[in-house]
Amino acid sequence: MELILITTAVITVIGLVVGAGLVFTGKKFYVEVDQREAAVREALPGNNCGACGFAGCDAMAAAIAKGEAPANGCPVGGAPAAARIGAIMGTEAGAVQRKIAFVRCKGSCEVTRNQGNYVGIQDCASAVRAGLALTDCDYGCVGLGTCVKVCPEHAITVKDGVAMVNRKRCVGCGLCAKACPKGLIELVPEQNRVMVQCSNRDKGPQVKQVCSAGCIGCMLCTRQCEAGAITVENNLAHIDYGTCTQCGKCVEKCPAKVITPPAEP
Protein backbone atom coordinates (compact mmCIF):
# COMPACT_ATOMS: atom_id res chain seq x y z
CA MET A 1 0.00 0.00 0.00
CA GLU A 2 2.82 2.36 0.97
CA LEU A 3 4.65 1.52 -2.27
CA ILE A 4 1.66 2.45 -4.35
CA LEU A 5 1.32 5.82 -2.61
CA ILE A 6 5.01 6.68 -3.07
CA THR A 7 4.90 5.71 -6.75
CA THR A 8 1.78 7.75 -7.38
CA ALA A 9 3.29 10.75 -5.64
CA VAL A 10 6.57 10.53 -7.61
CA ILE A 11 4.79 10.13 -10.95
CA THR A 12 2.48 13.05 -10.14
CA VAL A 13 5.40 15.32 -9.23
CA ILE A 14 7.31 14.36 -12.42
CA GLY A 15 4.15 14.97 -14.42
CA LEU A 16 3.66 18.42 -12.93
CA VAL A 17 7.31 19.42 -13.46
CA VAL A 18 7.38 18.23 -17.07
CA GLY A 19 4.01 19.81 -17.74
CA ALA A 20 5.18 23.14 -16.39
CA GLY A 21 8.33 22.87 -18.50
CA LEU A 22 6.31 22.17 -21.63
CA VAL A 23 4.00 25.08 -20.98
CA PHE A 24 6.98 27.36 -20.40
CA THR A 25 8.89 26.31 -23.55
CA GLY A 26 5.68 26.35 -25.54
CA LYS A 27 5.11 29.98 -24.60
CA LYS A 28 8.74 31.00 -24.78
CA PHE A 29 9.56 29.52 -28.19
CA TYR A 30 6.23 30.03 -29.89
CA VAL A 31 6.57 30.39 -33.66
CA GLU A 32 3.79 32.00 -35.58
CA VAL A 33 2.76 29.56 -38.31
CA ASP A 34 1.09 31.08 -41.32
CA GLN A 35 -2.01 28.97 -41.76
CA ARG A 36 -2.32 30.29 -45.27
CA GLU A 37 0.90 28.60 -46.35
CA ALA A 38 -0.52 25.15 -45.78
CA ALA A 39 -3.73 26.15 -47.54
CA VAL A 40 -1.82 27.52 -50.51
CA ARG A 41 0.24 24.36 -50.66
CA GLU A 42 -3.01 22.40 -50.85
CA ALA A 43 -4.20 24.56 -53.73
CA LEU A 44 -1.02 24.05 -55.76
CA PRO A 45 -0.99 21.08 -58.13
CA GLY A 46 1.98 19.36 -56.50
CA ASN A 47 4.01 18.55 -59.60
CA ASN A 48 7.21 19.83 -58.02
CA CYS A 49 8.38 20.73 -61.52
CA GLY A 50 10.10 23.95 -60.52
CA ALA A 51 8.69 25.88 -63.46
CA CYS A 52 7.69 28.77 -61.17
CA GLY A 53 11.35 29.36 -60.42
CA PHE A 54 11.15 28.02 -56.86
CA ALA A 55 12.45 24.68 -55.61
CA GLY A 56 9.15 22.85 -55.82
CA CYS A 57 5.60 23.44 -54.61
CA ASP A 58 6.49 23.77 -50.88
CA ALA A 59 8.92 26.60 -51.56
CA MET A 60 6.41 28.23 -53.89
CA ALA A 61 3.67 28.03 -51.25
CA ALA A 62 5.96 29.66 -48.68
CA ALA A 63 6.84 32.40 -51.14
CA ILE A 64 3.20 33.10 -51.97
CA ALA A 65 2.27 33.20 -48.28
CA LYS A 66 5.04 35.71 -47.65
CA GLY A 67 3.92 37.74 -50.61
CA GLU A 68 7.17 37.16 -52.51
CA ALA A 69 5.47 35.39 -55.38
CA PRO A 70 2.27 36.29 -57.20
CA ALA A 71 -0.86 34.23 -56.63
CA ASN A 72 -0.91 33.29 -60.29
CA GLY A 73 2.78 32.32 -60.38
CA CYS A 74 2.14 28.64 -60.96
CA PRO A 75 2.01 27.98 -64.71
CA VAL A 76 0.82 24.42 -64.20
CA GLY A 77 -2.20 25.11 -61.99
CA GLY A 78 -3.35 27.88 -64.28
CA ALA A 79 -6.48 29.91 -63.63
CA PRO A 80 -8.31 27.52 -61.24
CA ALA A 81 -5.33 27.25 -58.89
CA ALA A 82 -4.72 30.98 -59.10
CA ALA A 83 -8.35 31.69 -58.20
CA ARG A 84 -8.19 29.41 -55.18
CA ILE A 85 -4.88 30.86 -54.03
CA GLY A 86 -6.22 34.36 -54.59
CA ALA A 87 -9.16 33.54 -52.35
CA ILE A 88 -6.84 32.24 -49.63
CA MET A 89 -4.53 35.22 -49.84
CA GLY A 90 -7.34 37.69 -50.24
CA THR A 91 -5.85 39.20 -53.39
CA GLU A 92 -7.00 39.45 -56.96
CA ALA A 93 -5.80 36.39 -58.82
CA GLY A 94 -5.37 38.12 -62.15
CA ALA A 95 -6.05 36.41 -65.42
CA VAL A 96 -3.97 33.34 -66.13
CA GLN A 97 -4.06 31.70 -69.45
CA ARG A 98 -3.24 28.04 -69.61
CA LYS A 99 -0.31 27.65 -71.92
CA ILE A 100 1.05 24.72 -73.83
CA ALA A 101 4.51 24.02 -75.16
CA PHE A 102 4.92 24.32 -78.89
CA VAL A 103 7.91 23.23 -80.99
CA ARG A 104 8.63 25.78 -83.68
CA CYS A 105 10.00 23.30 -86.19
CA LYS A 106 8.56 20.65 -88.44
CA GLY A 107 11.86 19.55 -89.91
CA SER A 108 11.26 15.82 -89.91
CA CYS A 109 13.52 13.39 -91.74
CA GLU A 110 11.25 13.65 -94.77
CA VAL A 111 11.69 17.35 -95.39
CA THR A 112 15.27 18.05 -94.38
CA ARG A 113 18.47 16.14 -94.95
CA ASN A 114 20.84 14.70 -92.42
CA GLN A 115 24.06 16.61 -92.34
CA GLY A 116 26.40 14.22 -90.62
CA ASN A 117 26.22 11.04 -88.69
CA TYR A 118 26.56 12.18 -85.09
CA VAL A 119 27.90 9.62 -82.65
CA GLY A 120 28.60 10.50 -79.05
CA ILE A 121 26.55 11.54 -76.06
CA GLN A 122 22.89 11.34 -77.06
CA ASP A 123 21.87 14.80 -75.95
CA CYS A 124 20.89 17.82 -78.04
CA ALA A 125 23.23 20.22 -76.26
CA SER A 126 26.17 17.83 -76.72
CA ALA A 127 25.46 17.45 -80.40
CA VAL A 128 25.16 21.19 -80.87
CA ARG A 129 28.44 21.77 -79.02
CA ALA A 130 30.12 19.14 -81.15
CA GLY A 131 29.19 21.29 -84.14
CA LEU A 132 27.17 18.55 -85.76
CA ALA A 133 23.52 19.37 -85.66
CA LEU A 134 21.70 16.41 -87.09
CA THR A 135 19.91 18.33 -89.81
CA ASP A 136 21.11 20.66 -92.50
CA CYS A 137 19.10 23.51 -91.05
CA ASP A 138 21.05 25.45 -88.43
CA TYR A 139 17.89 26.46 -86.58
CA GLY A 140 15.92 23.24 -86.54
CA CYS A 141 15.15 20.50 -84.05
CA VAL A 142 18.16 18.30 -83.29
CA GLY A 143 15.90 15.40 -82.41
CA LEU A 144 17.97 13.82 -79.66
CA GLY A 145 15.28 14.42 -77.08
CA THR A 146 16.72 16.65 -74.36
CA CYS A 147 13.19 18.05 -73.97
CA VAL A 148 11.83 14.52 -73.64
CA LYS A 149 14.19 13.90 -70.73
CA VAL A 150 13.26 17.04 -68.77
CA CYS A 151 9.49 16.79 -69.26
CA PRO A 152 7.97 15.76 -65.91
CA GLU A 153 4.70 14.77 -67.57
CA HIS A 154 6.14 12.63 -70.40
CA ALA A 155 4.29 14.84 -72.82
CA ILE A 156 7.01 15.10 -75.48
CA THR A 157 8.10 12.46 -77.95
CA VAL A 158 10.58 12.64 -80.78
CA LYS A 159 9.03 11.29 -83.94
CA ASP A 160 10.84 11.23 -87.26
CA GLY A 161 13.61 13.43 -85.93
CA VAL A 162 11.46 16.23 -84.59
CA ALA A 163 9.94 16.77 -81.13
CA MET A 164 6.17 16.79 -80.70
CA VAL A 165 4.04 17.81 -77.75
CA ASN A 166 1.01 15.89 -76.49
CA ARG A 167 -1.46 18.71 -75.76
CA LYS A 168 -3.47 16.75 -73.23
CA ARG A 169 -0.49 15.84 -71.12
CA CYS A 170 1.43 19.14 -71.34
CA VAL A 171 1.02 21.23 -68.20
CA GLY A 172 2.87 24.23 -69.59
CA CYS A 173 5.66 24.24 -67.02
CA GLY A 174 8.15 25.44 -69.62
CA LEU A 175 11.05 23.22 -68.55
CA CYS A 176 11.47 22.01 -72.12
CA ALA A 177 11.69 25.58 -73.38
CA LYS A 178 14.57 26.19 -70.99
CA ALA A 179 16.33 22.94 -71.93
CA CYS A 180 16.17 23.25 -75.73
CA PRO A 181 19.63 24.36 -76.93
CA LYS A 182 18.11 25.78 -80.10
CA GLY A 183 15.42 27.71 -78.23
CA LEU A 184 12.70 26.17 -80.38
CA ILE A 185 10.02 25.66 -77.77
CA GLU A 186 7.69 28.45 -76.72
CA LEU A 187 4.58 28.51 -74.55
CA VAL A 188 1.44 29.32 -76.47
CA PRO A 189 -2.09 30.00 -75.10
CA GLU A 190 -4.02 26.76 -75.12
CA GLN A 191 -6.82 27.87 -77.43
CA ASN A 192 -4.45 29.07 -80.17
CA ARG A 193 -4.14 26.55 -82.96
CA VAL A 194 -2.60 28.69 -85.67
CA MET A 195 1.16 28.74 -85.25
CA VAL A 196 4.29 29.15 -87.37
CA GLN A 197 6.12 25.86 -87.23
CA CYS A 198 9.56 27.12 -88.20
CA SER A 199 12.44 29.06 -86.67
CA ASN A 200 14.69 29.54 -89.67
CA ARG A 201 15.72 33.18 -89.97
CA ASP A 202 17.63 32.79 -93.24
CA LYS A 203 16.42 34.12 -96.57
CA GLY A 204 13.98 32.13 -98.68
CA PRO A 205 16.36 30.46 -101.16
CA GLN A 206 18.68 29.37 -98.38
CA VAL A 207 15.76 27.91 -96.43
CA LYS A 208 14.58 26.03 -99.51
CA GLN A 209 18.04 24.51 -99.87
CA VAL A 210 17.96 22.93 -96.45
CA CYS A 211 14.30 22.18 -95.74
CA SER A 212 11.16 21.86 -97.84
CA ALA A 213 8.90 22.74 -94.91
CA GLY A 214 10.56 25.97 -93.79
CA CYS A 215 9.20 29.52 -93.62
CA ILE A 216 10.58 31.45 -96.57
CA GLY A 217 9.40 34.84 -95.37
CA CYS A 218 7.21 35.42 -98.46
CA MET A 219 4.81 37.77 -96.59
CA LEU A 220 1.71 36.15 -98.10
CA CYS A 221 0.30 35.45 -94.67
CA THR A 222 0.63 39.08 -93.56
CA ARG A 223 -1.59 40.16 -96.46
CA GLN A 224 -4.16 37.50 -95.69
CA CYS A 225 -4.51 38.33 -92.03
CA GLU A 226 -7.45 40.63 -91.40
CA ALA A 227 -6.60 41.10 -87.76
CA GLY A 228 -3.06 42.21 -88.57
CA ALA A 229 -1.66 39.65 -86.18
CA ILE A 230 1.14 38.41 -88.41
CA THR A 231 4.46 40.14 -88.86
CA VAL A 232 7.51 38.92 -90.73
CA GLU A 233 10.74 39.70 -88.98
CA ASN A 234 14.17 38.35 -89.99
CA ASN A 235 12.54 36.36 -92.79
CA LEU A 236 10.33 34.53 -90.34
CA ALA A 237 6.59 34.94 -89.82
CA HIS A 238 5.45 35.62 -86.30
CA ILE A 239 1.87 35.49 -85.01
CA ASP A 240 0.75 37.68 -82.16
CA TYR A 241 -1.36 35.23 -80.22
CA GLY A 242 -3.34 37.97 -78.51
CA THR A 243 -4.73 39.50 -81.70
CA CYS A 244 -5.00 36.32 -83.78
CA THR A 245 -8.66 35.44 -84.41
CA GLN A 246 -7.79 31.97 -85.70
CA CYS A 247 -9.72 32.51 -88.89
CA GLY A 248 -7.35 30.12 -90.67
CA LYS A 249 -6.86 32.18 -93.83
CA CYS A 250 -3.10 32.19 -93.47
CA VAL A 251 -3.13 28.43 -93.03
CA GLU A 252 -4.82 28.08 -96.40
CA LYS A 253 -2.49 30.46 -98.22
CA CYS A 254 0.90 29.56 -96.76
CA PRO A 255 2.86 28.09 -99.72
CA ALA A 256 5.32 26.26 -97.50
CA LYS A 257 2.55 24.93 -95.24
CA VAL A 258 4.40 26.01 -92.12
CA ILE A 259 1.38 27.74 -90.56
CA THR A 260 -0.61 24.79 -89.29
CA PRO A 261 -1.86 23.33 -86.07
CA PRO A 262 1.10 21.26 -84.88
CA ALA A 263 0.99 17.53 -85.37
CA GLU A 264 0.51 15.46 -82.26
CA PRO A 265 2.10 12.16 -81.49
Binding site: G120, I121, A125, S126, R129, A130
Partner: peptide, 13 residues
Protein backbone atom coordinates in the same frame (compact mmCIF):
# COMPACT_ATOMS: atom_id res chain seq x y z
CA UNK B 1 32.78 6.27 -71.51
CA UNK B 2 32.73 9.52 -73.54
CA UNK B 3 34.54 11.42 -70.78
CA UNK B 4 36.26 14.08 -72.87
CA UNK B 5 33.06 15.07 -74.61
CA UNK B 6 31.35 15.49 -71.24
CA UNK B 7 34.17 17.66 -69.92
CA UNK B 8 34.37 19.79 -73.02
CA UNK B 9 30.66 20.43 -72.89
CA UNK B 10 30.60 21.14 -69.17
CA UNK B 11 33.54 23.51 -69.42
CA UNK B 12 31.78 25.44 -72.15
CA UNK B 13 28.60 25.50 -70.08
Amino acid sequence: RPLTQMFKQTKAE
